[in-house]
Simulated scan of single mutants.
Amino acid sequence: MSVQLKVGLIVNPIAGMGGKVGLHGTDLASFAVALSLGAQPTSGLRTVRALAGLVNEQELFDFYAAAGVMGGDYLEEAGISYTRILNFASDRKSGAGDTRAIASSLIEVGVDIILFSGGDGTARDIFSVIGGKIPIIGIPAGVKMRSEVFGIYPESIAGILISQAQSSVGTRVREAEILDVSELPNRNGIWDTELFGVALTPNATQHIQCSKISGESHADIGLCELANAMAKEMAPGKLYLIGPGRSAYLILQEQGLVGSFVGVDALVDGQVIGRDLSEDAILALLERFEKRELILGVIGGQGFLLGRGNQQISARVISAIGFDAITIMASARKISALIPARLHIDLGESDIYALIPQYIQVHTAPNRTILCSTEVPANDNVMTTV
């Protein structure tokens, strides 16, 4: 038998919990708040989605993980054997120190690559230990995922690892930026993206997301004119939900209003009636207003429309409002940089994908649009353009 690829698994079990309840990250400090708001664990489900495509290819891999909630539980659920390196009880809270401890143990056993489930914070914790010694690949399971080390979808992971294991020249890697949102907003009230280092990740650019491009570079004249026109044309008595990011936020700025920028804000008759709304708060507003519209931007460099940094706009929200009531805005430069012009949507395991249109218009300036295709994760570990 050929040499197996030694894969270390680290799962941040609380990653992503804050997304639907309007928090912008989940660590031990915010964990209790997330629970009090009704948050549910999500990273485990996304880990199992990623591992599903490896079940029939186990002979290619030699897995190492901590027993329990930080890895072993999900390998066992998927039916994948592994070597236990540490123990973590399945009902135990985890923190950054635990992630770093497991990363150190994986270095000691000599893994070829570390597979982790979490967001940018988890990537930073692992990178702080391993630097550029070992390649890493992330299952996208956090609230924020701006770094270049995440699979586009959890289902992307299987193909990446299988390719690495079957490579005749060993693990093929490239350099990738580790990014995270700044701790505090800048003087304009906007959260910047900061570079924390350069890691190694598999050279599988078709299946790994690009790093997020700062929205400030894309606030061109056409987009500003579009925001101005949309602000002037807002109908009385209609609910407008303004999604996260600079593009949509321009509409609030045009009216001299202050929103959350990183969350979902609600606007009616020129007044902000809700800031940084959770999934439940959005659904409650949709029940109150018969006339409503959701305005979304696109993540620059990545092409994500839903599933990155806006998890509160969930499958339930999309089902309640319908795609006909969604307006997408972005600069022409941002969309033109996406090759192909495709928008990614990851709402978890949901029947909503059948309702997503195959093509969506993106407004780039008054009376100007670009037609983009849409892509969603598929059950057979191959991405589907709907």
Rank of each mutant, 00 (worst) to 15 (best):
K6C: 05
T47F: 13
D324W: 00
G121M: 05
E77F: 08
I356C: 13
M383T: 13
F261A: 06
L223S: 10
K6Y: 00
V129M: 07
A229I: 06
T205V: 14
E254P: 06
G79P: 09
A341G: 10
A52E: 14
M230F: 07
E254S: 12
A248I: 04
G263Q: 12
D269C: 04
G300C: 02
A67Y: 07
R146C: 14
T26I: 09
P340S: 05
L86W: 03
L338D: 09
I370Y: 02
L286M: 15
V376R: 15
I356N: 09
G151M: 02
V376N: 11
G25N: 02
S117I: 01
D125E: 12
D98W: 02
V7C: 02
Q361S: 12
L267T: 02
G119F: 04
Q255W: 02
A231H: 01
D125S: 11
N367C: 12
I321Y: 08
V109L: 01
R333V: 01
R92Q: 15
V362C: 06
L250N: 08
G274A: 01
V258N: 14
A337Q: 13
G274F: 13
V21H: 08
H344P: 03
V48K: 13
V169S: 12
A320Y: 05
L241A: 09
L28R: 13
D27P: 02
I345F: 03
G44T: 14
L343A: 10
F61T: 04
S36A: 12
R316F: 04
S104W: 10
P41Q: 04
R172I: 15
Y249I: 04
G307N: 09
A320E: 12
R275G: 09
A67R: 12
E293R: 10
L161G: 08
G25C: 06
N310M: 10
K232F: 03
A123S: 12
P357Y: 07
E76I: 11
E290N: 13
D346N: 11
G301E: 06
V264R: 00
I352P: 01
H218P: 02
A248C: 09
F304A: 08
P236Q: 00
V169D: 10
L371V: 15
L35E: 15
V33I: 10
A65S: 14
Q255R: 14
V55A: 14
D73E: 15
H207A: 07
A320T: 11
D120K: 03
L35P: 05
S211R: 14
H363R: 14
Y249V: 08
A227H: 04
D265I: 01
L355I: 10
V3K: 12
A354D: 08
H207Y: 11
L252M: 12
L9G: 00
Q312L: 06
T171E: 11
S373K: 08
R84T: 15
E254N: 09
I137E: 01
A158D: 05
V376A: 14
K291L: 15
A39I: 06
K238R: 13
Y359E: 14
H344Y: 15
H207R: 07
L285E: 10
L347E: 05
H24R: 15
F31D: 03
Q302I: 04
R146I: 13
Y353V: 08
A158P: 01
I85W: 08
L252Y: 06
L306M: 04
F150L: 02
E279I: 01
G301A: 08
C210N: 14
S128Y: 04
I221H: 07
T99K: 01
V258G: 09
G307I: 14
L45N: 13
S104C: 03
G297P: 01
G297E: 00
